[in-house]
Design a protein around this nucleic acid. Structure first.
Lengths: 203, 203
DNA sequence: CCCTTTAGAAAGTAATCCCTTTCTTAAAGT
DNA sequence: ACTTTAAGAAAGGGATTACTTTCTAAAGGG
C-alpha cells in the first residue's frame, strides 16, 4: 500500500522563512486589501501557522508595515543613464509606472483604513514615512545630470515644473491602479515637460 | 426642584432625519475611516439607534455609498465666470481644492479597504462610478468659454495640457488629504498651464 | 550525537461588530 | 380624535478575528 502523499514536511528557517512570510503578506494585501487581510489568511498563504507570525511581529499592523517595507526594498526603481534628459525621463517614468503599479494604491488604502490604530500615527504621517523614499531622490540625479550637460537650468526652472512629471505619474497610479501606458508617459514628457523646460533654457 | 435636563425627546422624521444620518456617516468616515466606522458609532453620532439605520440601508456598505453620494450632492463645485481663462481656472481649481478636500482620499480608502465585499464591484469600478461626475464636465465649460473668447485653441492644445491642472489638484488632494494651498494653485496655472497654452496660440 | 531552538498544528479566549428582535411611544396622516 | 407609521432604546445572536497557549518534532549548532 502506497503511503498517501509522504509529504516531506520540510521546515523553512531564518531569512528564507521571513521573506516568504512578508511576500505572502504583501500578496494578500494586494489581493484582498488591508481590511480583509487576516493573520490566518497570511499564515495559510505562507503555508505556516499564526504563531510563526506573532513570534516575529507583535500585531497585524507591524506585519503589514514590514511587508510594505520589504516589497519596496525588493523592487528598487531603475534610474538608467541614457545620455539625454528626454531619454532618462522616459525610461525612469516608465520604470516608476511599472514597478510602483499597485504600490501606492495599496499603501494609501492601508494607511487610511486602519493602520493608524496601533501606531498612533495620522494617515498623513504614515504616507509621508512610507512614500518619502520614492518621492525625490532618484529625480534629483536625473535633473543634476541634465543640468551638467547644459540641457536644463536648475536655477531658473520652477520646482513645480520639475515635480510635475512625477506628480502626474503618481496621479495615474493612484487613479487607475495599473501601470501607466507608454503613450501617456511620452505625452507627459513631450507635450508637457519639455516645452516648459525649453522656455527656461540657459542663454 | 428643577427636573434634571428635561430632554424634550423630539423625534426627527423623513428627509430631515435621513440627512442627519447621512451627514453623521460622512463625518464618521472622514474622522475614523471606513474600517473603523461602525453602525453603532454612526448611530451614536446621529443621536439615534442602529435599527433606524437598518430600516433605510441593508448594510454598512449601502450606508457608506449613500453617505458619499449625499455629500457629493450637498457640496457642488462652483464654476464661476470671471471673464478670463486665468481667472476662471484659479477660481475653479481653488473651489475644487476646497470642496473636494478629503473627498477623494476618503472614497479611495473606502473603495480599497472593504467596500467591494458586498457590492461585488472591483475597486476600479467603484472609483469610476463615484468620481466620474467630478472628472470632466465643469472643465469643458471653462475651456469652451476661453475658446470662444480666443484665449485658447481647443483644436491645437493637447488633451494632456487641458487635463493637467485638474490632474495635479487631484494628485495633491490624494497625497496631502487637505485643501490645496493658494500658492500651489497659482503655480499650477502660471508656471505650468498658461506657458503651455501660449505655445499653441491661434495665429 | 546531543541540545537548543523554533516551525507548525490544534484549540481556545476575549473582544468586536454586523445585524436582528422586541417593545414603547412620539409623530404624521386623515 | 383616532389610526398608522416609524423613531429610539435595550438586548442579544452569530460570525469573525486578533492574539494566546500548548504541544510535537524538525532543523541547525556544537
Amino acid at each position: 500500500m502506497v503511503p498517501e502523499t509522504p509529504e516531506p514536511a520540510r521546515r523553512r528557517h531564518g531569512a528564507q522563512l521571513e521573506s516568504a512570510l512578508l511576500t505572502a503578506a504583501w500578496d494578500e494585501l494586494v489581493e484582498v486589501g488591508y481590511a480583509r487581510l487576516t493573520m490566518g489568511s497570511v499564515a495559510v498563504r505562507a503555508r505556516t501557522s499564526e504563531p510563526v507570525l506573532y513570534r516575529r511581529w507583535a500585531n497585524k499592523d507591524q506585519l503589514v508595515l514590514a511587508a510594505i517595507e520589504h516589497h519596496r526594498k525588493a523592487d528598487p526603481v531603475a534610474v538608467p543613464d541614457t545620455g539625454t534628459l528626454r531619454g532618462d525621463l522616459l525610461a525612469h517614468l516608465t520604470a516608476v509606472g511599472e514597478t510602483l503599479s499597485g504600490f501606492f494604491g495599496v499603501v494609501m488604502a492601508a494607511a487610511c483604513s486602519g493602520l493608524l490604530s496601533d501606531t498612533g500615527l495620522t494617515p498623513s504621517q504614515i504616507r509621508e514615512q512610507v512614500m518619502a523614499a520614492q518621492r525625490l531622490p532618484p529625480v534629483r540625479t536625473i535633473y543634476r545630470r541634465a543640468h551638467d550637460r547644459g540641457e536644463l537650468d536648475l536655477e531658473r526652472v520652477p520646482a513645480a515644473v520639475l515635480a510635475m512629471p512625477f506628480d502626474l505619474v503618481r496621479h495615474d497610479l493612484l487613479m487607475d491602479m495599473g501601470p501607466v501606458r507608454p503613450a501617456r508617459v511620452r505625452s507627459i514628457v513631450d507635450d508637457l515637460f519639455l516645452p516648459l523646460v525649453r522656455d527656461h533654457r540657459t542663454g
